[in-house]
Nucleic acid binder design. Structure first.
Length: 262
DNA sequence: ATGACGAAATTGTTTCGA
């Protein structure tokens, strides 16, 4: 089965592209971020017509996340339990794992942080600490768990088109990279790095100054897997195709393929 | 140093993203 994540930067604008990509990529589970719409405006019928179920958590103007899946999700939870947050950034569901069992899927739109001097940076690190805390208990419950989303962290210099220029900026700073490493410390692995990848592989490119054409990007969208899923993961890639669409999102989808037996 | 692009909430311009 194929699981994927895509920050669509407005589901209202990007819905046709999402439907096209779902069909073309044969994705079974798609985590979406930056819906930028309220719950009542979620286009459920379009996904139902395409043969999918959905759960979502939206708000006006900003944020918003959804899980689109061929099978309905169980035990859907919004946000990080125990962490008070008016911003809708997380949704989780239990889904069939494609091998007769179940897997926990967490879809996350992690805060951007804006700059190291910003209150939003303080919020970002506090948010990651809350995620870390909560994941510990989730991992105890769910051996097969995948955390997919826009992390707003480029984990290493190889994930940055121009590391010298980006040094110590938001998205690459030492505390942010430590927060990412702390997640790996829980026993999670970066699916993309399980495999040999082209140099200069990115998942986001700035709209400005022909960022995509110049491949001036960052790899900030990730799929983290528990060991049980790592053993079933046979491929992971970034699909740059949709970034070349007319009126594209500034992010590209990232996917991982899981097979039934290890 | 600033703005550059795109989306949303609004209808001229600001806020925010990464």
């Amino acid at each position: 089965m194929k699981i994927a994540t895509w920050n669509v930067n407005s589901l209202k604008v990007r819905l046709p592209q999402v439907l096209d990509w779902l069909a073309a990529s044969e994705t079974d589970v798609l985590c979406l971020q930056e819906l930028k719409l309220t719950d009542e405006n979620f286009p459920l019928q379009a996904f139902v017509d395409a043969g999918y179920h959905a759960c979502w958590s939206g708000q006006k103007t900003y944020n918003g996340v959804a899980i689109i899946s061929r099978e309905p999700g169980r035990d859907v939870i919004k946000n990080i339990p125990g962490y008070e947050d008016s911003q809708q950034r997380v949704i989780s569901a239990t889904l069939p794992d494609g091998a007769g069992g179940e897997m926990r899927v967490i879809c996350a739109y992690c805060p951007n942080g804006q700059s190291l001097e910003s209150d939003k940076y303080v919020y970002k690190l506090a948010w990651y600490a809350a995620l870390q805390r909560w994941l510990k208990s989730e991992l105890a419950r769910y051996p097969q768990l995948a955390l997919l989303g826009d992390y707003n962290i480029a984990p290493a210099d190889e994930d940055v088109h121009n590391p010298e220029k980006w040094a110590d900026q938001v998205l690459v700073s030492v505390p942010e990279r430590q927060a990412f490493q702390d997640l790996l410390g829980l026993g999670l692995s970066d699916a993309f790095r399980l495999f040999e990848q082209p140099e200069k592989s990115f998942s986001w490119w700035d709209y400005r100054q022909f960022g995509f054409r110049r491949n001036a990007g960052l790899r900030i969208d990730h799929i983290l897997l528990t060991q049980a899923l790592v053993e079933r993961c046979v491929a992971s890639e970034i699909d740059k195709g949709p970034r070349g669409n007319e009126q594209p999102s500034d992010h590209a989808p990232v996917w991982a393929r899981l097979v039934a037996g290890a």
